[in-house]
């Protein structure tokens, strides 16, 4: 894929496909100071908006990656194009993760301005939860070929986290908010595995 094609794909995808989802994620982020107090919070309370609320941006941005081509006829058209469909999807995933990191950075700047006790580990831990939640929706969408099932799986996993802390172990999303000493690297590894098996399934079994 040459650079011009790359930027063109990225621009068209952002404007034509991803914009409603980006707008929803922006709205969710903009509401953070309304729902949470972002001043003078200690380290544990600072993690709450990042893990229990902003993590939903991961679901909003990453679950609908396959949505534009959910219709088989559109997918058939995409298949005959010279650029690989899965390369385009990978590009979308990277773009969405960058947007997600920017949204987190914006909220954390606001928290720093409000004298909250935050550090880089909050950024790392918060984004880990968001990317993992998004990867669950992404993977379920890929396997079922249905974005509704993607959202259903991601939302159910989020709800499960509200009551099953012990059972989820290292894959518990709200580790920092509940002062559990979890290594968030597992969430990133889990997300990477889910992205990889989704692409492998589409490439090898579905022959896309």
């Amino acid at each position: 894929m040459d650079f011009e094609c790359f930027t063109s794909c990225l621009r068209i995808n952002l404007v034509r496909n991803a914009m409603p989802h980006i707008c929803a994620a922006l709205l969710l982020t903009a509401l953070t100071p309304v729902i949470f107090s972002l001043t003078a919070l200690n380290a544990q309370l600072s993690a709450q908006p990042l893990e229990m609320y902003l993590a939903l941006t991961g679901m909003l941005l990453l679950t609908p990656v396959f949505l534009p081509e959910q219709d088989d006829t559109v997918r058939d058209v995409v298949r005959v194009r010279p650029v690989s469909y899965l390369q385009i999807c990978a590009l979308r995933v990277i773009a969405m993760i960058i947007i997600l990191l920017l949204l987190y950075a914006a909220v954390m700047l606001l928290m720093q301005h409000g004298s909250c006790q935050i550090s880089l580990s909050h950024f790392y831990g918060g984004t880990a939860s968001a990317v993992f939640l998004g990867s669950i929706g992404f993977c379920a969408s890929a396997f079922s070929d249905n974005t509704v099932i993607g959202y259903m799986t991601a939302i159910m996993y989020f709800i499960l986290n509200l009551s099953a802390k012990e059972e989820l172990g290292e894959f518990y999303l709200f580790g920092m908010s509940s002062a559990a000493s979890l290594n968030k690297i597992w969430l990133y590894i889990g997300a990477a595995v889910l992205f990889a098996i989704s692409f492998a399934y589409l490439k090898v079994l579905k022959k896309i």
């Binding site: 729902i35 949470f36 107090s37 001043t39 003078a40 919070l41 908006p49 229990m52």
Partner: peptide
């Protein structure tokens, strides 16, 4: 707790 989450008010 206006939305169920902690909020400090001054």
């Amino acid at each position: 707790y206006p939305f169920g989450f902690y909020r400090s008010v001054k």
